[in-house]
């Protein structure tokens, strides 16, 4: 490491590798656990914000079933898998089987990369081009055919104020004009409609999600495991009836704000873990090369990086149900 970063000099501090007899710990292990304690408080703060905001949300303002459950489940499995391979990598080092270590660590790294790729190239972008408008409560009656509040009331469910789908036309001056134009082109090709769209300059036109297309259907009462495809039905919504309108980005609602912040921060942790794993996998002086001079030291490093990785997994275990399922 000193070779690459000339300003770092090694100091001979005791208990960097061997354990201190009375605590039974080498220093870095204590350090990482302290760090994880602070991480617990960091994510604790974020999760308490989630609870606070969700409980504070008026009925109908905390969306459900907007995320892709199968993909989320797959990512959960991948992360759990990487957790077990990193334990195997550490165990291989302990048993002095270097090639196995390289193998398991490679799998761990690939799992991490897969997780991030799914997140960044599929899950997030799919949200960015989805669109929702919250209808003012005073105007909701006008849009009953998309909201189905009478039906929901009869079923003793929370009311629905939002119409979601793909935006095809945005009111003049709206920042979503370009997205709408792009979607409209796609829509007219795919569905075989004419280029003529309903609505005028002051309207949002939305190609509806299944749930808004048939709001009175029993099937749509609960979120589905497989995402329901967009309907070919459209809705025209007057701009003055809209409380807020946004694509599914952080500003859309407190739900998406917490979702993007927590998964974003979690993603950064995944990235950080990957950087450390790559360093330990490649022949750096403090990485895989360390095996030759001091295998126990390398095993310690892998153990510590692994502890961090398990924690990242552990956070995801909570993130998955609270955003995707509940």
């Amino acid at each position: 490491m000193s070779k690459f970063l000339p300003f770092f000099t090694d100091r001979d501090v005791p208990y960097t590798v061997a354990a201190r007899p009375d605590t039974g710990l080498y220093s870095a292990k204590l350090g990482i656990w302290l760090f994880l304690a602070s991480e617990v408080m960091l994510f604790g703060g974020l999760f308490s914000a989630y609870i606070f905001l969700r409980l504070g949300a008026e009925p109908g303002y905390w969306p459900k079933g907007l995320l892709n459950v199968p993909v989320g489940t797959l990512n959960t499995a991948v992360l759990i898998g990487s957790s077990v391979t990193v334990v195997f990598a550490w165990a291989s080092l302990k048993m002095r089987e270097f090639m196995k270590y390289r193998f398991y660590m490679a799998i761990t790294i690939l799992c991490g990369i897969f997780f991030l790729c799914v997140k960044l190239t599929y899950e997030w972008p799919a949200k960015f081009d989805h669109f929702g408008v919250f209808i003012k409560q005073s105007s909701a009656a006008k849009y009953e055919e998309f909201l189905g509040n009478d039906f929901l009331k009869e079923k003793n469910e929370e009311p629905r104020w939002e119409v979601t789908g793909h935006i095809l036309r945005a009111p003049k001056g709206s920042p979503y004009g370009a997205v709408a134009e792009h979607n409209a082109e796609h829509f007219s090709h795919g569905a075989g409609h004419g280029l003529h769209l309903p609505g005028g300059e002051g309207d949002y036109v939305i190609q509806l999600d299944a749930i808004n297309a048939k709001p009175n259907s029993e099937d749509n009462l609960r979120p589905a495991f497989w995402p329901r495809p967009l309907s070919s039905k459209t809705a025209v919504i007057r701009a003055e009836d809209v409380e807020s309108a946004s694509t599914f980005v952080p500003r859309h609602s407190t739900y998406f704000a917490t979702y993007f912040l927590i998964t974003g921060l979690h993603g950064l942790h995944v990235l950080g873990g990957l950087v450390v794993f790559l360093y330990l996998w490649l022949p750096f002086k403090g990485g895989a090369t360390l095996y030759k001079s001091n295998p126990e030291h390398l095993a310690n490093r892998v153990e510590i990086a692994g502890l961090f990785w398990h924690f990242v997994d552990l956070v995801w275990i909570f993130v998955f149900p609270i955003f995707y399922l509940l």
Partner: peptide, 11 residues
């Protein structure tokens, strides 16, 4: 300098 006692603990 490496310290033998600390750093080459046999597995």
């Amino acid at each position: 300098m490496m310290i033998s006692h600390d750093n080459t603990l046999p597995s």
